[in-house]
Design a protein around this nucleic acid. Structure first.
Lengths: 231, 231
DNA sequence: TTCATAGTTCGATGATAGCCGAAGCATCGC
DNA sequence: GCGATGCTTCGGCTATCATCGAACTATGAA
């Protein structure tokens, strides 16, 4: 009856709680084995195998065989974007899960969104970058300025010209579900997060499956010096 | 079990084909009635009612009651964004569908909504009236200004004070079916349509049951002079 | 070769949820 | 008032699909 691709098949894949748990577990950007995903979803390996086959057929995840293990990862950053968007809608509708642990405030402050920084600090960073005219935002597109390229090279040792990718933009606005504002995604967003990790300013929480990012005391200071809120 | 909003509930809502058809129909931005959405999805009104209740509970759509109709629209632009993202993923996975046909252009331009003018020209008229400060709109209530009363008396020979009615407001915002914006209902809306007919600016189409309104050449000119778009 | 681990396929089961017919409210037009 | 229309609720039918036990394949280690 309608034009356009068949959304409902894809959405139905995400609509199952077990599959959804697997997908959110993959949002950290890391690839996980079938068994790990089964445990993450709280189901038996047989059931997980069936789910993973469906997710793969739907183009949401991609397998990588390695010995007798099978690693799965999200097939595309767009998938992570859609999941983030769904989180935003779910949060607004007040459909939170019952388990609300001590991680919650930390999750709001700084977390991994696929492979880049999200949460309060992520939003603050993009805001500051716009104030410093390192990036220019028009509509949903974000562009790195000449000033921005210099900044990346001098302050963070990131070569912006090396970040171009065939299917992924260098800069992209990604809607934050806890804040309702944008943070920086794209290859630059990923490269900056990598750099923060390499500099030991921040590290992903050790808990498996956790999306929390912990900043060191020194890291927080250096981060604030570059992207402080009061800039 | 993870912290964070419950994505799967929301995704499951989109995951049903019938509900998904309704949502994509609403992606134009227009608000549609429950019956229209039922037809759009190819299901009976009973089933549609159940689906719409679920979508509303999930925060994906918002109702607007209007007489015996119930108009639904997407509750937030973010919802449309997520649907678009899903389309992208589905397109990449190769799940496509077929095409559909348009609607009657004359009906979209000018038609009768109960007893007042609706369609493109109806929306244009209310817009112009607001620009000329003939009416003041706060929320859904519309009020005729002193300037507006003078205008009605001088230009259209309508005595606004005579329009008060025990059970019906003088001015009311009525959601338009083809446009997604408001046009003017209430006793004033009806009186103005009556006046247009009496002045032979416009007439209802002769076809029995038709809701189309045909403007004469002269009528269109006079109408534009009072409520022109470029005002 | 033999055993252990990772992952899959198959079949049966059970619960969820979509669907419609019939009947019930609410609103509009006369 | 009356009937017509838009929408909802209720009850029962049916199909789909997630789930797991058991058995099977594939890789790696001893």
């Amino acid at each position: 009856m309608k034009a356009g691709p068949d959304i409902s098949r894809i959405a139905a894949l995400v609509g199952d709680p077990a599959r959804c748990n697997m997908l959110t577990a993959l949002m950290t950007g890391r690839a996980l084995t079938a068994s790990e995903l089964a445990q993450e979803a709280g189901i038996t390996p047989q059931t997980a195998s069936s789910h993973l086959a469906k997710l793969e057929a739907g183009g949401l995840i991609e397998p990588e065989k390695q010995g007798r293990h099978r690693y799965y990862r999200l097939s595309d950053p767009d998938v992570a974007d859609v999941l983030e968007g769904l989180q935003g809608i779910a949060a607004r509708a007040g459909h939170m899960r019952v388990r609300t642990g001590p991680k919650d405030p930390a999750l709001r402050r700084a977390r991994i969104c696929y492979d880049h920084l999200a949460g309060d600090l992520g939003v603050q960073m993009l805001d500051s970058m716009k104030r410093q005219k390192l990036v220019r935002q028009s509509k949903q597109a974000i562009e790195l300025t000449g000033e921005g390229k210099r900044f990346m090279a001098e302050e963070l040792q990131i070569d912006a010209d090396a970040l171009t990718h065939p299917r992924r933009p260098v800069c992209k606005a990604c809607l934050d579900w806890s804040e309702r504002r944008h943070h920086l995604a794209g290859t630059l967003g990923a490269a900056m997060m990598d750099r923060f990790t390499a500099l030991k300013w921040a590290a992903r929480d050790a808990t498996p499956g956790s999306r929390v990012v912990n900043f060191s005391r020194n890291g927080e200071k250096r981060f604030a010096a570059l992207f402080g809120a009061g800039e």
